[in-house]
Computed example of a mutant assay.
Amino acid sequence: MTAAQADLQPEFLEMPDGLRIDRPDVADGAALWRIAKNSRTLDLNSSYSYLLWCRDFADTTAVVRAESDGQPVGFVTAYLRPDRPRTLLVWQVAVDASHRGQGLAARLLDGLTARVVQQHGVTGVETTITPGNTASERLFLSYARRHGAAVDREVLFETRQFPDGPHDPEVLYRIGPLAA
């Protein structure tokens, strides 16, 4: 266990009964797509992209599974930035409505970053959040506090840059350095 893991609040070290964090496999792609679709807050990617994600980025993605049937009930997708391989870019975080309110998103984020810190030496996390998405803001600001990291924000993509109609700007959150 790393020092950063040891410093986590106890409620983020253990999963609720009947749930476990795991790596995804291709068979999970359809479930991730459904969870994203049903979230009604995420930009929904094609079902094909979730299948590819589970194949090509399984090392930097995590799912929370129900032990009863092995099905994903939540996920966090992420990748290592090609130009900054010690930075994990978190793409999407979602939890099925039936499992919300248990802190699963925070547990997924903590579990995934503990894995990629150990395997890839990650020192920082990035994500984008649209203004007004208070749930995501709370998730990532509390993550930064738990990991003793600073948060810098700047607009990454302006509204006018999106070709498919009105879209809120995407604000880049840079979190780091993570406590060692």
Rank of each mutant, 00 (worst) to 15 (best):
A106M: 14
Y48C: 02
D56G: 07
D25I: 08
T130F: 08
V151E: 01
S46Y: 10
W53Y: 14
G132V: 02
Q118Y: 03
P10E: 07
D164R: 11
S142V: 01
S49K: 05
P85R: 14
L112D: 02
E170R: 00
Q5A: 13
W91S: 08
A94I: 15
D69I: 12
R81Y: 13
R40K: 09
G70K: 11
C54N: 05
L13H: 10
D56Y: 15
A149L: 00
A30P: 00
D152H: 12
P24K: 08
V151T: 05
F57C: 04
P163L: 04
M15Y: 13
D69L: 09
T159Q: 04
T60K: 01
V155Y: 07
A62V: 04
L51I: 13
G18L: 04
Q102W: 13
N38G: 11
V76C: 10
L13K: 15
P163S: 05
Y50E: 05
R100E: 01
G103H: 11
N133E: 00
E126C: 11
T77V: 09
L88R: 08
H167L: 00
V93M: 09
T113I: 06
G29Y: 07
E11L: 09
L156C: 10
Q9P: 12
D22Y: 07
P177Q: 10
L52V: 14
L89G: 03
Q102I: 11
F140R: 00
P10N: 10
T2K: 09
W91G: 04
R65N: 01
R138H: 05
F157N: 06
D56E: 13
F12S: 02
G165R: 08
S39Y: 04
E154D: 07
P10D: 14
I175M: 03
P169F: 12
A66T: 05
W91V: 05
Q118G: 00
S47D: 13
L88Q: 03
R34V: 12
P16Y: 14
F75M: 09
D56P: 04
A97L: 15
F75W: 14
T130N: 01
A36P: 07
D164F: 10
E14K: 07
T159E: 11
G165N: 04
A31S: 15
G70H: 09
T113A: 04
L44E: 04
R107I: 08
R100S: 06
R34C: 12
Q9Y: 12
D7T: 03
R81C: 15
I129Q: 03
Q102A: 02
P166G: 06
S98H: 15
V76T: 06
V93N: 06
T2A: 08
